[in-house]
């Protein structure tokens, strides 16, 4: 596998978690989620690919979506975590931390980033 392919796999693995984290503190609509991710991460995301992921997470029952026409000049579709979504987020976050810690230990054992 090329370095590029490996980086893409990492990003792909982190994308669902990043989206769930973006709505962890309260409901957000699509564009708001994108802005939030851009503010805190360098995950490269285009609008056209975020909405299908949000749709899938909603279909899986991880997110719940609701249209709100009263707020803002246009109707917005807000996403929030469901109970099972919170559980999944907690599990994903815990696995992610564990994974990072293990890799950090390995790197430390190898004497830094360059073995």
């Amino acid at each position: 596998m090329t370095l590029e392919g490996w980086q893409e796999q990492l990003r792909r693995g982190g994308l669902d978690l990043a989206i769930l984290l973006a709505v962890a503190r309260g409901p957000r609509y699509g564009l708001e989620i994108i802005r939030h991710l851009e503010e805190f991460t360098d995950l490269v995301i285009t609008e056209g690919t975020v909405y299908p992921i949000l749709g899938r997470l909603t279909a899986e029952g991880v997110l719940a979506a609701e249209w709100n026409a009263s707020e803002g000049p246009h109707p917005r579709k807000y996403y929030r975590l469901t109970d099972s979504g919170r559980q999944r987020l907690a599990l994903m976050a815990s696995h992610w931390k564990e994974f990072i810690a293990k890799i950090a230990r390995l790197m430390e054992a190898a004497g830094g980033e360059r073995p």
């Binding site: 609509y29 699509g30 564009l31 609008e47 909405y51 749709g55 249209w67 803002g72 000049p73 246009h74 109707p75 917005r76 579709k77």
Partner: peptide
């Protein structure tokens, strides 16, 4: 999906 994309376009 189309409604959401339209909302996105107008918001942007």
């Amino acid at each position: 999906a189309a409604r959401e994309v339209e909302s996105h376009i107008r918001e942007r």
